[in-house]
């Protein structure tokens, strides 16, 4: 997992298979980055996610909850079709911004 800090934005690139097995490590890392840099905007770049199930939803929802406690926001971007379908099934776009190449959904 790679990340980049630009002023008040933390961009985290998530890759691989996002399931219950991999979630613990990934969410610890995401939380650590938020706590260390206290960003205003957290960008989750999902381009490298080959598979995601509802465990990944808990990561996105948990991240957005944590960011709103800091008066910040979450943007999810570059979501491949399979993870996108899972985000849509859960109606996640109601509480996080999902960006598809330039467009905001």
């Amino acid at each position: 997992m790679d990340y980049r800090i630009d002023e008040t934005t933390a961009t985290i690139s998530i890759s691989g298979e996002l399931d219950h097995h991999s979630l613990r490590e990934t969410s610890l890392e995401v939380n650590r980055i938020i706590d260390t840099y206290l960003p205003k905007t957290l960008v989750l770049d999902m381009a490298g996610v080959r598979f995601m199930d509802s465990s990944g939803l808990a990561l996105v929802i948990g991240g957005s909850r944590k960011m709103s406690e800091l008066n910040g926001r979450v943007i999810v971007k570059n979501v491949p079709p399979q993870p996108m379908k899972v985000l849509n099934a859960a109606g996640v776009s109601r509480f996080v911004t999902i960006e598809t190449t330039g467009k905001v959904v």
């Binding site: 979630l23 613990r24 969410s27 199930d53 509802s54 465990s55 939803l57 379908k85 859960a90």
Partner: peptide, 22 residues
């Protein structure tokens, strides 16, 4: 039911909803 979970913050409660819709 969507969002129902006994698993706490680690779980979304959306597993059955995903199975149903897929």
């Amino acid at each position: 039911e969507p969002m129902y979970t006994t698993g706490g913050a680690d779980r979304s409660g959306m597993g059955f909803t995903v199975m149903e819709s897929f």
